[in-house]
């Protein structure tokens, strides 16, 4: 990396007063953390310790947007905190994330995704339209004859 690259990489990314979150998941993990804190489950200093370590251990990747990096670190830190608090360990969280993936894969597009779909695809999700879905039988003689001549 030459000097100019180093300077560019180290530039402070100035902004105007933009949106607080870049994506709903960032807002969600933030809100989960704050709500759990407000319930008294942990001290803020405990959180600062964990997220500080995580930021140091997994710094922003080249080209990663600041909020993406920050809330990626936040999410990892929150997972660690959840494990520390004995709420759920890492493997449990990974399994649950995988269940959600399966739930998406098993849920027809346009339908709300529910965790229950993870290993049980909706039974009546997508009937194939090989034939007409409803038939009203012909009643006039002419048509009946045309179809089934006597």
């Amino acid at each position: 990396m030459n000097d100019i690259d180093a300077m560019t990489a180290a530039r402070v990314p100035l902004d105007e007063e933009g949106p607080v979150f870049d994506a709903p998941w960032q807002a969600n993990v933030f809100a989960l953390t704050v709500q759990l804190f407000k319930s008294g489950a942990f001290d803020w200093s405990q959180w600062v310790q964990v997220i500080g370590e995580e930021i140091k251990a997994a710094p922003a990747r080249p080209g990663e947007r600041v909020n993406d990096a920050y809330y990626r670190q936040w999410t990892s830190a929150f997972e660690r905190l959840i494990a520390q608090l004995g709420i759920a360990d890492g493997p449990t969280l990974s399994r649950r994330a995988e269940q959600w993936r399966q739930a998406y894969l098993h849920t027809p597009h346009g339908v709300a995704v529910a965790l229950g779909n993870a290993d049980c695809p909706p039974a009546h999700g997508h009937p194939r339209r090989h034939g007409a879905v409803a038939i009203s039988p012909a009643t006039t003689r002419d048509i009946a004859q045309a179809i089934d001549p006597v």
Partner: peptide, 13 residues
Amino acid sequence: DIELRVKALESIL
């Protein structure tokens, strides 16, 4: 993946 992880956290909590 990260959205799934957040959904995992939310559903467990």
